[in-house]
Design a protein around this nucleic acid. Structure first.
Lengths: 241, 241
DNA sequence: CATTGTGAAGCGTTTCACAGCC
DNA sequence: GGCTGTGAAACGCTTCACAATG
């Protein structure tokens, strides 16, 4: 996913918290964080790895190992203090301050993203939304006026945007990425169904609806044509990973 | 990700193509498929693992291993015939026929999904969109009239829907899942930021925007506060995984 | 004595390296 | 000669199992 550095982990004085956290763990921390936030609101102030694992739909050992990368913040025989854990995870994920994002593409998806309040709430305010189509410029989405894509560099600079979201059709996505990178963005969330070509230093994450549906299709197809007579086995509930 | 079956792989007469394909491979097949489709349109009728790997942003050996799970459809010294590979991947993914989907939740995201033509184009026509809010019922989104969630069982049965998409707020998502399962849906694509509890036999995939942004935040935070003096190393282009 | 933190085993995925084949 | 197909090594992640400990 991201470039590997040989072996910095040990030896080289990690000052305070410069451990490298496995990608798999990083992708679960936001899930723990949301659950812990809910628990805190519900008045729970202590939680065991078992309890957190249950709510997150994962194995308890995995929770412990994940949390151990942040440091030893649990108490043996007791569990983890919810508030402190929230603080530590937020710190590790860099959520101690807001990260304004800029959305490229004011089509269906761009509109939905801009209109989706949860973005700002979770620390990612929409600093701007741009489109190349001048007929869309000026319309207002979720409180943000659509601006022309040529204004991208200005938005990125004045609002100090590090994260760009590509919500254009596939054909326009590479151009969008090029413009974002040129404007100074260093992380991209790509909703377009293409593989972006960007400098190595840029972190890219991709969300592709078609891919997700096709993976589900694969499983449906197996269910139907596959295993002899695929019985609807097990009606018990279980958390999903 | 999905429930593991002990060890069916060998021994038990795989009739024709009942091999189990690794999850990681399944998640890449849609990417290869899209690229191959584009190549076919561009008039390319043969491609090497190297070429496909380049376009997909992965390692060539990985492409070969992935394709080998489908069978030996390449020609040594030559490469793979694009059209045939497209056919085989489509067959394996169950894309030889349409999979109608039902969308639960006609808010921002539900609207964007329903309005996004790419859904139907790629073999996943929107069989219906439902909401619990009666004020939304009757409005038309992307050519589909919003119906009340109580009509879900009827839609699922008459349109033979296997795949449900949850586009509700988190608080309503578990109820949506329960209703989908009860109505007979066996695969769910969940956009709500909660861990769904469903019977083991149900395949669930989750797309969480907040999680994606928080992962990017982690990398930005590392860049800023991390490694001594994090130089913007490497400006060369490289495909992203 | 319940629960964490963690070596070590287990497992799935990736990559290498090269035999096999066109 | 070029490229596929695939054992085997390497790697990273998950899970187990238990010593450490409040």
């Amino acid at each position: 996913m991201c470039a590997r550095v040989p072996n910095v982990a040990d030896g080289m004085a990690p000052d305070r918290n410069r451990r490298r956290i496995p990608d798999a763990t990083v992708s679960r921390l936001p899930v723990y964080l949301r659950i812990l936030g809910e628990q805190a609101e519900a008045g729970v102030d202590n939680i065991s790895s078992e309890g957190l694992a249950e709510l997150a739909g994962v194995n308890a050992a995995k929770v412990r190992k994940d949390l151990s990368y942040l440091g030893s913040y649990g108490t043996r025989g007791v569990g983890y203090e919810v508030a402190y854990l929230v603080y530590q995870i937020r710190r590790e994920l860099g959520l101690t301050h807001d990260w304004p994002v800029v959305i490229v593409g004011a089509g269906n998806l761009g509109q939905a993203l801009a209109g989706y309040g949860g973005f700002g709430e979770r620390g990612f305010p929409v600093a701007g939304i741009v489109d190349i189509d001048t007929t869309k410029v000026g319309t207002v989405l979720g409180g943000t006026r659509v601006r022309h894509i040529d204004e991208l560099p200005q938005i990125v600079q004045t609002r100090r945007v590090n994260i760009g979201v590509i919500a254009t059709p596939g054909a326009a996505a590479q151009d969008a990425a090029d413009r974002l990178v040129k404007a100074g963005v260093t992380s991209i969330l790509n909703f377009a169904p293409i593989v972006l070509s960007v400098p190595r230093a840029i972190e890219v994450r991709k969300v592709d609806l078609a891919v997700e549906l096709q993976i589900l299709s694969y499983h449906e197809q197996r269910r139907a044509g596959g295993a002899i007579h695929a019985v609807q086995s097990g009606t018990g509930r279980s958390a999903t990973a």
